[in-house]
Nucleic acid binder design. Sequence first.
DNA 1: CGGAATTAGTGGAGATTCCGAACGAATTGG
DNA 2: CCAATTCGTTCGGAATCTCCACTAATTCCG
Lengths: 398, 398
Amino acid sequence: MRRTNLSLALRHLRTNGGRSRAQLAQDLGVSKATASALVGELGQRGLVRESELHRTGGAGRPGLTVDPDGRHVAGVGLELNTDYLAAVAVDLRGRRLAETVRHLDIADLRPAAALDAAADLVGPLLKELRADGVTPMGLALSTSGVIDHAAGVVTFAANLGWRDVPVVSEVRRRLGLADDIWVSVESANQLAAVAEHAAYGDPALTELLYVSGDEGVGAGIIAHGRIITGASGFSGEVGHLPLNPAGTTCRCGRTGCWETLVGFGAVVERATSPGDPLRDHSVPLPRRIDELRSRLAAADEDAHAAIEQLVVDLTTGLSVGIDLLNPQVVVLGGWFAAVGDLIATPVARALEQRQRDFGSVVDLAVSRLGALSSATGGAHFALEPVLDDPLLAPKAST
Amino acid sequence: MRRTNLSLALRHLRTNGGRSRAQLAQDLGVSKATASALVGELGQRGLVRESELHRTGGAGRPGLTVDPDGRHVAGVGLELNTDYLAAVAVDLRGRRLAETVRHLDIADLRPAAALDAAADLVGPLLKELRADGVTPMGLALSTSGVIDHAAGVVTFAANLGWRDVPVVSEVRRRLGLADDIWVSVESANQLAAVAEHAAYGDPALTELLYVSGDEGVGAGIIAHGRIITGASGFSGEVGHLPLNPAGTTCRCGRTGCWETLVGFGAVVERATSPGDPLRDHSVPLPRRIDELRSRLAAADEDAHAAIEQLVVDLTTGLSVGIDLLNPQVVVLGGWFAAVGDLIATPVARALEQRQRDFGSVVDLAVSRLGALSSATGGAHFALEPVLDDPLLAPKAST
DNA sequence: CGGAATTAGTGGAGATTCCGAACGAATTGG
DNA sequence: CCAATTCGTTCGGAATCTCCACTAATTCCG
């Protein structure tokens, strides 16, 4: 009961920005007295704090702005990707407190070794946070593949070669985490969508589609301000959308999958001839992307032609998502973001032209979070328990 | 505060089925005393009632089952479609109290005349409900096209030829409705999805995709048990999904739209030769479907070939929705349902084969609600205010 | 068959938490 | 400088929840 109201108040302040107690009371439909009490309790826990005067311009006594604070509670995100681990900590204000990336080929390791490495990365980070007086409230792991959320198990992750790995309990054990810290696994692309959503920080933005490509292509969907996970956490699997029955054969055996049109490998094949070093899969993806970029800078005709085709094919696939979901914003991530400066404008123009006929408009944006996107989203996600129940936050000594 | 708990209790009983007070207390995390009080208050308003003993098999005194009742509060749905009006009333138990369909070519009428006809249809229905002691709590209008929900205006509906018609206020005025009855407009396909979702009545079913075809094709999405409306209520516009760059030209000017593959007109074109009476657009759609069916029964080869192709193309488009949303169930409506007995099994088999590779499984179902689907969904939707605030229901005299 | 154990529902005491009204404080505008 | 206005706090009263005790109804088991 009180919890619910505290949660509502904190969420409201966080998404809609700081405001006076009186304003908050009106927004939440409670009395001023109640709003004061709620703010008081949130303040005791360091989740909000008063800042300067809140002048409205009109007559009357100005209020004291109550801003979300929460600098000493944090969420932590940890991404387990094919060729790197990334950890990010974010406090309740949305400020990034820490970030670490470690490159290593997880696909070459056994799950146990990979989880060891992950624990080695996050353990010090948690210790550091605690040393700074910050309490980590949750830890969200990020992987791709099939996830059993309830059990905290990665059922199947093709890119890591994992099957039935109980990541939540394993990470818990390795880090020696107490029960008061919440640990979960979520889909990498869905968390990246959360990160992009949080990066906007606009309360009116509730419908967002995040599309990321590397070798494969994946998407994350935010609707009504929440992640759409699907029945088995398997939403956003757009890599094999059948977009061209006359297209090339995909590694999945079918023809014309979106991945065969806009995956990095597919574009490189169109931009190069057999034997080209750019086609070498053993080179890390960031370096291959750099190489492609330098060829584009050097006005390589084949590369430019491939990018032009990418614009067309990207538009086609995005149209599918837009028609189905009608988002306000589409965010491009992964290697699409790496060539965002080249493709964003033409894709946006093509989308606009297409969607105008159908009455809906959509903004196109390019992710600026890079490899940290999914971990950042995890960090935000890991704060959910505090937002749901602010009483979980420890009483501040400061 | 109390309202919230009443709402939670009523929703819980409705979605999870009747149970004892003690059970309810445990489920909601409140004390037994509170659960008793809540049930008492809901009972006073006729929203729940006690039925027989609730034996669990174990030791101890058996409880009295508390079942959702609400036979004297109703939601009403009214669909405005191209060639018919349909109205449905549903009580809180989910029982259909009334239904009316009236065929008329709305596209030929001015909006004012169409709204007159709609009011003539619903007015008597409301009167009848009231005469039976049933209080209509809400009225949901259903149209296709672009809808401004907040204003209650149909901004643009291609099939009706409407532009900026303030349907909510107009219907309110014509029916002389008081402020205590809630009126809204929603998208036809989204409401149909609600109806299918409600028809299942399974609390575990929260992710559903409804796909309906007639001349055009549309979808409705339920995720987390709620409608996904999209940024401007324009989600589920799957008619122009670009599925074949080498396909035929669509009326929208592009090529290979899904509509050109699975729309009724498209299939008929493949099943007939020029000049065939089946191609006559002036014949009402149900009759044309009947004619196609009788040709199929007569083993018309072209018709069968067209249906076989439909199976392939339907599978392709459904795969798109499944990959993106990972629903538990896909429900086919509209003319797809009219040929459901012929296509459901092969489509389901094709989907199963495809999805198995991706780790997700999905059920395929055929709608049995026919032309009433959208109005039925509207009726369910119109009950939302009572579920949100059970205190709105009048105290029962019975 | 009968008492012990177990579970359901109710009533009352006490504690929380909310609201409304009243009041002092801080500011604008004339 | 004073009226008007708005902010935030305080305090009494009301609503509502929880806890605990108690009765009721049933199963279990000797």
